[in-house]
Amino acid sequence: MDFNLAEKLAIVKAIDEVILVDGQVKKSEIDLLTQLMNILKFDRVLIEEARNITAKECMHILKGMPENKKHALGVMLNEMANADGEFNEAEYRLIFNIMLEAGIEVDHNPD
Protein backbone atom coordinates (compact mmCIF):
# COMPACT_ATOMS: atom_id res chain seq x y z
CA MET A 1 0.00 0.00 0.00
CA ASP A 2 1.41 3.36 -1.01
CA PHE A 3 0.96 6.36 1.24
CA ASN A 4 1.59 9.90 0.01
CA LEU A 5 3.95 12.21 1.89
CA ALA A 6 1.21 13.90 3.94
CA GLU A 7 -0.22 10.52 4.97
CA LYS A 8 3.24 9.27 5.95
CA LEU A 9 3.81 12.39 8.05
CA ALA A 10 0.50 11.93 9.88
CA ILE A 11 0.99 8.18 10.37
CA VAL A 12 4.53 8.65 11.65
CA LYS A 13 3.35 11.38 14.04
CA ALA A 14 0.61 9.09 15.40
CA ILE A 15 3.03 6.17 15.79
CA ASP A 16 5.62 8.43 17.44
CA GLU A 17 2.99 9.62 19.94
CA VAL A 18 2.16 6.00 20.82
CA ILE A 19 5.85 5.27 21.39
CA LEU A 20 6.25 8.31 23.64
CA VAL A 21 2.96 8.27 25.58
CA ASP A 22 4.14 5.95 28.35
CA GLY A 23 7.34 7.93 28.91
CA GLN A 24 9.58 5.00 27.96
CA VAL A 25 11.08 4.11 24.61
CA LYS A 26 11.88 0.40 24.48
CA LYS A 27 14.19 -1.38 22.04
CA SER A 28 11.27 -3.46 20.74
CA GLU A 29 9.44 -0.23 19.81
CA ILE A 30 12.50 1.08 17.97
CA ASP A 31 12.85 -2.27 16.19
CA LEU A 32 9.23 -2.10 15.00
CA LEU A 33 9.66 1.54 13.97
CA THR A 34 12.68 0.50 11.90
CA GLN A 35 10.57 -2.19 10.20
CA LEU A 36 7.86 0.37 9.47
CA MET A 37 10.48 2.73 8.04
CA ASN A 38 11.39 0.02 5.53
CA ILE A 39 7.79 -0.93 4.73
CA LEU A 40 6.48 2.63 4.38
CA LYS A 41 9.73 3.92 2.86
CA PHE A 42 10.55 6.80 5.19
CA ASP A 43 13.65 7.89 7.09
CA ARG A 44 14.58 9.65 10.32
CA VAL A 45 14.22 13.04 8.63
CA LEU A 46 10.51 12.31 8.13
CA ILE A 47 10.20 11.46 11.85
CA GLU A 48 11.58 14.90 12.72
CA GLU A 49 9.26 16.55 10.19
CA ALA A 50 6.30 14.61 11.61
CA ARG A 51 7.08 15.89 15.10
CA ASN A 52 6.71 19.43 13.73
CA ILE A 53 3.14 19.08 12.45
CA THR A 54 0.32 19.85 14.84
CA ALA A 55 -2.09 17.26 16.19
CA LYS A 56 -4.87 19.09 14.34
CA GLU A 57 -2.99 18.83 11.01
CA CYS A 58 -2.28 15.17 11.71
CA MET A 59 -5.91 14.35 12.42
CA HIS A 60 -7.11 16.27 9.35
CA ILE A 61 -4.83 14.15 7.14
CA LEU A 62 -5.76 10.86 8.83
CA LYS A 63 -9.47 11.66 8.60
CA GLY A 64 -9.12 12.19 4.85
CA MET A 65 -7.50 8.82 4.15
CA PRO A 66 -9.54 6.06 2.47
CA GLU A 67 -10.85 3.22 4.66
CA ASN A 68 -8.15 0.71 3.67
CA LYS A 69 -5.41 3.12 4.77
CA LYS A 70 -7.28 3.90 7.99
CA HIS A 71 -7.46 0.18 8.69
CA ALA A 72 -3.71 -0.15 8.08
CA LEU A 73 -3.13 2.77 10.48
CA GLY A 74 -5.18 1.01 13.17
CA VAL A 75 -3.13 -2.15 12.75
CA MET A 76 0.17 -0.22 12.92
CA LEU A 77 -0.88 1.68 16.06
CA ASN A 78 -1.96 -1.50 17.83
CA GLU A 79 1.21 -3.33 16.83
CA MET A 80 3.30 -0.46 18.17
CA ALA A 81 1.38 -0.40 21.45
CA ASN A 82 2.00 -4.14 21.83
CA ALA A 83 5.64 -4.03 20.68
CA ASP A 84 6.97 -3.85 24.23
CA GLY A 85 4.59 -6.55 25.48
CA GLU A 86 2.59 -4.01 27.51
CA PHE A 87 -0.55 -2.36 26.15
CA ASN A 88 -1.07 0.17 28.94
CA GLU A 89 -3.98 2.50 29.67
CA ALA A 90 -2.25 5.61 28.24
CA GLU A 91 -1.54 3.81 24.95
CA TYR A 92 -5.11 2.49 24.80
CA ARG A 93 -6.61 5.95 25.38
CA LEU A 94 -4.32 7.60 22.83
CA ILE A 95 -5.02 5.00 20.13
CA PHE A 96 -8.75 5.09 20.87
CA ASN A 97 -8.77 8.88 20.49
CA ILE A 98 -6.69 8.84 17.29
CA MET A 99 -8.91 6.22 15.72
CA LEU A 100 -12.11 7.97 16.84
CA GLU A 101 -10.91 11.35 15.50
CA ALA A 102 -9.79 9.77 12.22
CA GLY A 103 -13.19 8.15 11.74
CA ILE A 104 -11.98 4.59 12.26
CA GLU A 105 -14.51 2.25 13.83
CA VAL A 106 -13.21 1.10 17.20
CA ASP A 107 -14.10 -1.62 19.65
CA HIS A 108 -14.84 0.21 22.90
CA ASN A 109 -13.81 -2.80 24.99
CA PRO A 110 -10.03 -3.07 25.53
CA ASP A 111 -10.32 -6.81 26.39
Rank of each mutant, 00 (worst) to 15 (best):
V75F: 15
H71W: 14
M76V: 11
M80T: 13
K63R: 15
K63P: 10
A90G: 00
A72P: 00
E57H: 09
L73S: 13
E89A: 01
F87R: 12
K69I: 07
A72I: 12
C58M: 15
C58W: 11
N68T: 14
M59G: 02
G74I: 04
A72N: 12
M65K: 08
K70P: 05
E86W: 12
M76A: 13
F87S: 02
A72S: 13
G64R: 09
G64P: 04
F87H: 12
A83R: 07
E91R: 01
C58V: 11
G85A: 03
M59N: 14
E57V: 00
K70M: 12
L62Y: 05
G64Q: 06
L73Y: 05
A90E: 12
F87D: 06
V75W: 08
V75D: 15
N68K: 10
N68Q: 08
N82W: 09
E86R: 15
N82T: 01
G74C: 05
C58A: 14
L62M: 08
P66E: 11
E89T: 10
E79M: 14
E86G: 00
N82Q: 05
L73V: 15
N68F: 14
A90Y: 02
K69E: 14
A72E: 11
N82I: 01
E57W: 03
E89D: 02
K63V: 02
K70G: 07
A83L: 04
H60T: 04
L62Q: 12
L73E: 02
N68H: 14
A83I: 04
E67P: 00
I61S: 05
M65H: 02
M59Q: 13
G74N: 00
A81S: 11
M76Y: 15
M65N: 07
G74H: 14
H60Y: 11
H71S: 05
E89N: 00
E57T: 07
E91W: 04
K70R: 10
A83P: 09
D84I: 00
M65A: 10
V75P: 01
G85Y: 07
A81M: 06
N68M: 08
E79S: 06
L77C: 03
L73P: 13
H71C: 03
M76C: 09
H60K: 15
I61F: 04
C58L: 06
I61A: 02
M76T: 06
E91I: 12
G64T: 03
L62A: 10
K63W: 04
D84M: 02
L62V: 13
E57D: 09
H71R: 12
E67M: 11
A72M: 11
N88Q: 08
N88V: 09
D84A: 00
D84K: 02
G85D: 04
G74E: 08
F87V: 07
L73I: 07
A90K: 05
N78E: 07
E86M: 13
N82M: 08
G64C: 01
A72W: 06
M80D: 10
M76R: 15
G85N: 03
E79Y: 02
H60F: 06
